[in-house]
Design a protein around this nucleic acid. Sequence first.
DNA 1: ATGATATTGAAAATCATTTTCAATTATAAA
DNA 2: TTTATAATTGAAAATGATTTTCAATATCAT
Lengths: 138, 138
Amino acid sequence: MATKSWLTQLQDNGYRLTGARRAIVEIIADSRRALTPVEVYDAARDQYPALGLVTVYRTLEKLEELGLIQRVHQPKGCQAFITAGKGHQHLLLCNKCGRTTLFDGDDIDQFIKSVAKKTGYRITEHWLQLFGLCEDCK
Amino acid sequence: MATKSWLTQLQDNGYRLTGARRAIVEIIADSRRALTPVEVYDAARDQYPALGLVTVYRTLEKLEELGLIQRVHQPKGCQAFITAGKGHQHLLLCNKCGRTTLFDGDDIDQFIKSVAKKTGYRITEHWLQLFGLCEDCK
DNA sequence: ATGATATTGAAAATCATTTTCAATTATAAA
DNA sequence: TTTATAATTGAAAATGATTTTCAATATCAT
Ligand SMILES: [Mn+2]
Ligand SMILES: [Mn+2]
Ligand SMILES: [Zn+2]
Ligand SMILES: [Zn+2]
C-alpha cells in the first residue's frame, strides 16, 4: 500500500534501505488493525527471517518520528501502532476484529467550546476514540 | 476528601483496613492530578514510611476494580490514576500543571450518529479527552 | 570497487510489574 | 480480652517489555 512512499521517506531522511526495514514497513502499512511490536516481529519474519525484535523497536521509533505511524491507546494496552492519518483525525475501533479506521469529518467544536466556557480551560487539542463493531462484524 | 467513603467501600467488599491502604487512598483521593504508582508510593510514605511499592500496585488494582479510580491515558504514558467519575465522563487535562477535570454535560451523540452512518460501524462507546490549559495556568 | 558509517542481531542491562513466601496484623469468634 | 483464622504485608525473586552495548555486516556515496 503505502510501503513505497514510506521507504522513500525513510531514505529522504537519511535512513538506509534494508531488508529488515522493508519487511517491517510492509507489514504495518498493509495492516488494517493496530499491531504490537511482537506482532510486527512475528509477521515480518515470514519475509525476513533473520529479523531481530530490537530492529522492530528501532524502526517503529523512526516511523513514529516521521509521522508515518501512530500509537493506539486501548483498554488492553497502549503499545500498538497503525498507519497515521494526515492532520487531525479521530479513531474508530472494532471490538471484535480489531479493525481500526481513521476519520475526520464534522468536528465537535461546538461541544468543545461549551466545555471551555463551562470549565474555564483553554482547550487546544482533543483525542476522540469510538469503539464498536465494524460493518463486517456487526 | 472521598477518603472515608473509599475506606468504607473497601471494608464493605471484604477488604481489611490497614495503615498502608489508608495512606494510599488518602493520597489519590486528595490529588487533583493523575498519579503514577511510584508517585503514590513516594507521597504515601510520608504518612506511612514502611509502605512497600508492591502494596501500592495491589491497592491500585483493588480501587480500580471497585471503580473508585480510573487510568488516564496521556502522550507521556498510560500508568497514571485519578479519582473515577460516576457514569460516563470526559476528561480535561492541563498541559502545564497536570490538573485533571472530569465532566459530563451535553454529549456528542449527534456527531457519533453521523459517523456511524458514514462508516457503517455500530458505535457503542467512546473516549474523549480534551487537552489545554486550566484556569490557573492559562 | 572502496571506504565511511549506518544498521544489524545477540546478549546484557535496565525498568516496570507480578509472583512467591514467611512474618505480621486485622478482624470475627469465643 | 484473648484467641484463632485468614487477609495483608514487604522483601526478594521472577517475569516481561524495552533499551543499551558491541562487534560484525551491509548500504550507499564516491
Ligand atoms: Mn476532532
Ligand atoms: Mn461522551
Ligand atoms: Zn470488526
Ligand atoms: Zn493547570
